[in-house]
């Protein structure tokens, strides 16, 4: 098994200058993706730098989720899918036959479009990724639960009912629980598919703050339909349309001075 090299986290912790960052942490090269005969992604090429927030925007059905789900090979599970091109994380192809999908996924956390808590207690939900990795030491788990729930802005609401079923939470709380679960084992990359679509403005703000604070540690890719959100918390923005990458640039540039007409139409709302 080849391990994809881990980034130098020591540096990552203190490094704030752009110079430290690997500007090609995630490389997507001529990537196309097919659900059976239907092509959902058309020849996308883009590089996402380390410890940055990249936002995917675009109209519904344009393939944002599909691309995102390919970054941790979640789409492998669907029957009859096929891809072309390659995705390279930190210098190693994730499609390399020697890469173990499970260890890949351990290092890439994911928050889904629909919240999906497990039928377990809140506590067990958060520590799930640690448990499946064989970590059962109580102090470590306790510490993780508190840290993750605090990061996900949920700690105060659930600290007294950690051992109750997670399915008794409200929709927004469930989504924040899923975020806590995704960051519990400190992945290097965090994939978020519309994490705030079920949240109220206050929780949304908290999540955005969370994203900004996590940026120093994680590389984050976020799908959003909320333009303000993209401007508020992302460094880079990619605009997709009909499975194609139309424009990919710094967020300020995309939202103030887009080079493509379609992008401008979309962000100004003049666009289906």
């Amino acid at each position: 098994m080849t391990e994809i090299p881990r980034p130098k986290t020591q540096q990552a912790a203190k490094g704030t200058q752009a110079g430290d960052r690997n500007s090609k942490f995630i490389e997507i090269k001529n990537f196309s993706f097919f659900y059976g005969a239907a092509q959902a992604i058309h020849d996308v090429t883009m590089d996402m730098p380390e410890r940055n927030v990249t936002a995917f925007i675009g109209p519904s059905g344009c393939g944002k989720s599909t691309l995102l789900r390919n970054l941790n090979r979640m789409n492998d599970l669907i029957d009859g899918v096929r891809h072309e091109g390659d995705i390279i994380v930190n210098g190693h192809s994730i499609y390399d036959p020697l890469v173990e999908v499970i260890s890949l996924r351990k290092r890439i956390g994911m928050v889904f479009q629909k919240s999906n808590p497990f039928p377990k207690s809140i506590y067990e939900n958060v520590v799930y990724s640690l448990r499946v990795a064989g970590q059962n030491s109580r102090p470590v788990l306790d510490e993780t639960v508190e840290r993750s729930l605090r990061s996900a802005a949920l700690w105060d609401e659930v600290k007294d009912r950690l051992h109750e079923s997670a399915l008794g939470l409200s929709g927004g709380q469930m989504q924040r629980l899923c975020i806590a679960r995704a960051i519990a084992n400190r992945p290097e990359i965090l994939l978020m598919d519309e994490p705030c679509s079920a949240l109220d403005p206050i929780a949304t703000m908290k999540i955005e703050q969370l994203i900004l604070s996590l940026k120093s540690e994680f590389t984050i890719v976020i799908v959003t339909h909320n333009m303000q959100q993209a401007t508020r918390c992302s460094d880079l923005t990619a605009f997709f349309y009909l499975g194609k990458l139309i424009e990919f640039d710094r967020t300020e540039k995309i939202f103030t001075n887009p080079s493509q007409k379609q992008t401008e139409e979309y962000i100004t709302g003049r666009f289906g």
Binding site: N72, M74, L77, I102, S103, R105, K106, R107, I108, G109, M110, F112, N116, P117, F118, P119, K120, Y128, S129, R131, V132, A133, C178, R181, A182, N185
Partner: peptide, 18 residues
Amino acid sequence: VREGSLACGASKWQTIQR
């Protein structure tokens, strides 16, 4: 729910069992 478990790095059997 299955995808959530797999995304946490669980194997298929762990997902089924847990």
